[in-house]
Design a protein around this nucleic acid. Structure first.
Lengths: 121, 121
DNA sequence: GTAAAATCTGACATCAGTGTCAGGTTCAAG
DNA sequence: CTTGAACCTGACACTGATGTCAGATTTTAC
């Protein structure tokens, strides 16, 4: 599939898809004319990348993690080194805290929304 | 309490505290000499602000939400308008999606970490 | 073959919170 | 007093993913 379709199906801009490739996060075949041609699995991969970005990992770290995760089809093509595992454990902790923080914020917003509904009646 | 102590107790830099004040998110008394003097409740407030930032709200929106939330001591000093409620509901949806995304990423990292532990033995 | 749509590369802009530094003032302890 | 620590304002830099635009090329539809 070409870049336009991938962008549409993932909700990620073409700009970002090219950037991901430049950062070594995403690979593509090329047509004889030089246009990108993506495999079907690219869809899942792009979504994972987006999620990892949202989780606060930068592209360098994502590039190191990606080969270690189980792909849609097969098992992981690489095993994380001890150093990477340590770093990922830290990220994991951070993500956990982030989730707690988000849950708090969600509760706060709910409180404000409820108070407004309460006041209305 | 002065800015240094507040920074220490909240883990937020002095720079950020001054920025919050500039954005109308945080108020402070001033000593005769012009130095900031915070009330005890500022601690909780700063933490809330940080959480709302982490949840992706910008300072302008936070400034609108803050007066509508229940403070540590009393009830909310303002009730959210219909327009604000609509916006907050959207934010809430976004935060929910964000949480889901983070949970996914956490699971992915766990998978990588587990696979490494698995491989080691 | 032609025209429109899609894609290519490269460059520059943006966002918004935060880091950092400079030069000056205030505060608190001895 | 004096001195060092803490604080003040103002300004500039940065980060790094993403938006956007220009000009050229490829692809697709007719």
């Amino acid at each position: 599939m070409k870049i336009g379709e991938l962008a549409r199906r993932t909700g990620v801009s073409e700009r970002s898809l090219r950037y991901y490739e430049q950062q070594g996060l995403l690979v593509s075949e090329r047509t004889p004319g030089g246009q990108r041609d993506y495999a079907e699995r690219a869809v899942d991969r792009v979504i994972r990348i987006q999620e990892l970005f949202a989780a606060g990992l930068n592209s360098k770290k994502i590039a190191r993690v990606l080969p270690c995760m189980r792909d849609a089809d097969g098992g992981p093509s690489e095993i994380a080194t001890g150093k990477l595992v340590t770093e990922l454990a830290e990220e994991r902790t951070r993500i956990d805290q982030m989730i707690n923080s988000l849950v708090n914020s969600r509760d706060v917003l709910d409180g404000v929304i409820d108070a407004a509904a309460e006041a209305e009646r």
